[in-house]
């Protein structure tokens, strides 16, 4: 187990280095950093001095090494647009994105698994048929359209929920949370639903397919033949066996939820990392873009690692080489 985790950690480091290389190339070679920093009337000699002071004349690998060193310390330079350290900008906006992502992942997981199990067990009923058809909408409609639709219905027509922003937030020192105020919670509902809808339908269809598969297996028949209760069979024996693929997809989807919250954050004016990124793209704020790239890669790598560890927890067969030999 430990060897496995170490091996995966090593792989993760390699992945991060590759991403860092790409981020560095974007940072260094997309446009001229000096040109972005200075005005048009700066003299060429001054530009040259600046270039030298910033180390932009050093060999490639020295610059890359410096970039890595800074990145490890969480330093990605100063945002061109906002003239603040990039790491500080991202950290300020991270809580909003994390809260949104986890809220929608929670919705997707709870309803996805619940509805998936339901539609698998009540395969013939009209309600399952209805849910399955409705899920097609979730899969096929683009996120921004769903967001705009929800805003129109619940914010404009019914006026039940706010259409943009994060509401009031409470500063916990290291974390600005919107979960502790009523307006914050109300503001979270629409964007969280919007962001979750695609993952929800995906998880639901996956759970349903896996459940149908598992319900046909011999061990479920044997569990029935032993007279176990329906609940024990469906939720104990069947559901647990569907978990390995569900964990994989859910984990990767959680990464996507954070990464692709961009659209939802834009639609709902959510002050998260995604909207920071969009604003930075518009003005070619390269340090922010590079940092965002690194951040998203880190999220995916960490989640992948967690998913792999969860496999071990769920499926004892994978632990074979670790424990089986001793017994």
């Amino acid at each position: 187990m430990l060897a496995f985790i170490l091996r995966r950690l090593a792989q993760s480091v390699i992945v991060m280095l590759v991403v860092a290389l790409i981020a560095f190339m974007v940072f260094r070679y997309v446009g001229d950093p000096i040109a972005s920093m200075v005005g048009v009337d700066t003299r060429l000699e001054d530009q040259e001095i600046m270039r030298d002071r910033l180390g932009l004349n050093d060999p490639f690998y020295v610059q890359f090494g410096r970039f890595i060193g800074n990145a490890v310390r969480g330093e990605f330079g100063i945002s061109y647009r906002l003239q603040q350290p990039v790491s500080q900008l991202i950290l300020e906006r991270l809580p909003a994105t994390i809260e949104l992502a986890f809220a929608s992942a929670l919705i997707a997981l709870v309803f996805g698994v619940g509805l998936g199990v339901f539609t698998a067990l009540k395969r013939g009923s009209w309600l399952s048929g209805f849910i399955m058809s409705a899920s097609l909408v979730g899969v096929s409609l683009p996120t921004f359209l769903i967001g705009i639709g929800l805003i129109y219905i619940f914010a404009v027509e019914l006026q039940w929920l706010p259409s943009f922003g994060r509401g009031q937030t409470v500063d916990l020192g290291f974390w600005r949370t919107g979960l502790l105020t009523e307006s914050g919670l109300r503001s979270l509902i629409l964007p969280a639903i919007t962001l979750s809808l695609f993952q929800l339908t995906l998880i639901m269809r996956l759970v349903r397919a896996e459940m149908l598969e598992v319900m046909r297996t011999e061990y479920i028949r044997f569990a029935r033949a032993r007279g176990l209760s329906q609940r024990a069979i469906h939720f104990g024996h069947a559901l647990k066996n569907t978990l390995v693929p569900v964990i994989t997809i859910t984990g990767l989807q959680l990464g996507s939820v954070i990464a692709f919250a961009i659209v939802t954050e834009t639609v709902f004016q959510w002050p998260g990392v995604g909207s920071l990124f969009i604003n930075s793209v518009q003005v070619v704020d390269v340090p922010v873009m590079a940092a965002y790239l690194m951040f998203i890669a880190l999220v995916f790598v960490v989640i992948n690692l967690l998913v792999d560890i969860l496999y071990y927890v769920v499926d004892p067969r994978l632990r074979v080489d670790a424990a089986g030999g001793a017994k």
Partner: peptide, 25 residues
Amino acid sequence: MRAIRGRRIGMIFQDPLTSLNPLYR
């Protein structure tokens, strides 16, 4: 009927490799 299954009628299936749930001790 479920109370009878396992309690008063036991059943043994063909393939022992697939009749036990792999995820439980």
